[in-house]
Computed example of a mutant assay.
Amino acid sequence: MEFPDLGEHCSERTCKQLDFLPLKCDACGEVFCKDHIDINRHRWSSAYKKDVQVPVCPLCNAPIPVRRGERADVIVGAHMDKGCRPDSARQKEKVFTNKCFRPGCKKKEMMKLVCDQCQQNFCLQHRHPLDHECQGPSRRVSKAGCAAQMRLLESRQKTSNGQLPPNRCRTKS
């Protein structure tokens, strides 16, 4: 051998191969060849301490928290013994729960869309005060907002009786 001091022997009892690029196990601190560096391959007795996977209960599909040093199978077994509810018994959470308050609308949204004026919840289509004919406290409206409201009212009134509505906007001064 030309370089007897180069490299180290694998710590695995059955291997003892001289490796010029040895790998040190961060769990046990011993040196191994590329074939035995895997914790499961060199049969380290406390390998479960380095395994940082989150176990999932096979009955309810819920993740089970396990602290370092605890055995996952023992914790999952205790979870199953205590009060694990299988998937079929567990109710699925509804996502679309926020019902639109506009009469005749049956849409539901994921998030609440509350009107600033009447403080009621509406769907995306009816979220603006003009879209749900808001009866909330009247606020001072800008001139542009008043003009938009008047055009909307005029178009509605013209189709029904042909007369123009009175101007009810209180504009900002």
Rank of each mutant, 00 (worst) to 15 (best):
A27M: 11
H79N: 03
R85F: 06
E70M: 10
G29A: 04
K82N: 06
C10P: 00
V66F: 03
Y48A: 08
C33N: 02
D5T: 07
H9Q: 09
H79Y: 04
A62D: 09
H42E: 01
L23R: 06
D73R: 09
R43Y: 15
D26S: 13
Y48D: 13
Q53N: 11
L18K: 06
A62E: 09
V74R: 10
I75T: 14
S45Q: 15
G77C: 15
K50N: 10
A47F: 08
D73S: 15
A62T: 14
K49S: 09
Q17L: 10
C25H: 00
S11G: 03
C15Q: 00
L21A: 08
D26A: 09
C25M: 01
L18Q: 04
G7Y: 02
D26V: 12
A72Q: 06
W44M: 13
D51T: 05
R13W: 08
L21D: 13
C28E: 02
S46D: 15
E12H: 09
E8F: 04
V66N: 03
V76K: 00
D73C: 12
V76N: 00
G77W: 08
V76F: 01
K34Q: 10
Y48H: 15
Q53D: 15
L59D: 13
R43F: 15
P86K: 11
G69Y: 06
L18T: 04
P86R: 13
C84Y: 00
V54A: 09
R68F: 09
I64N: 01
P58V: 10
Q53C: 07
Q53T: 11
P22T: 03
L18F: 04
M80Q: 07
C28I: 04
R67I: 12
A78Q: 12
S11H: 01
C25Q: 02
I39K: 04
K50P: 00
V52C: 11
P58Q: 07
R43H: 15
K50E: 15
R43C: 14
H42L: 01
N40P: 00
S11L: 01
D38S: 08
R13T: 08
T14M: 03
T14R: 04
V31H: 03
D19H: 03
H9R: 13
L21Y: 13
I37E: 04
P86T: 12
R43I: 13
H36P: 00
P63Q: 12
M80S: 01
I39N: 05
P63A: 14
I39Y: 05
R43L: 15
R85G: 05
K34A: 09
P4G: 02
D73M: 11
H9L: 10
P63Y: 07
V76W: 00
I37A: 02
K50H: 08
K82I: 06
C33D: 01
Q17E: 12
T14K: 04
R68Q: 14
D38I: 07
V54R: 06
D35I: 10
P22K: 03
I75L: 10
L21T: 10
V54M: 06
F32E: 00
I75R: 08
V52L: 11
Y48C: 07
F32G: 00
G77K: 12
P22F: 02
K16M: 07
C60F: 03
T14W: 05
V54D: 11
C15E: 01
D87G: 09
Q17Y: 07
G83T: 04
R85T: 12
L23I: 09
D73H: 12
D81Y: 07
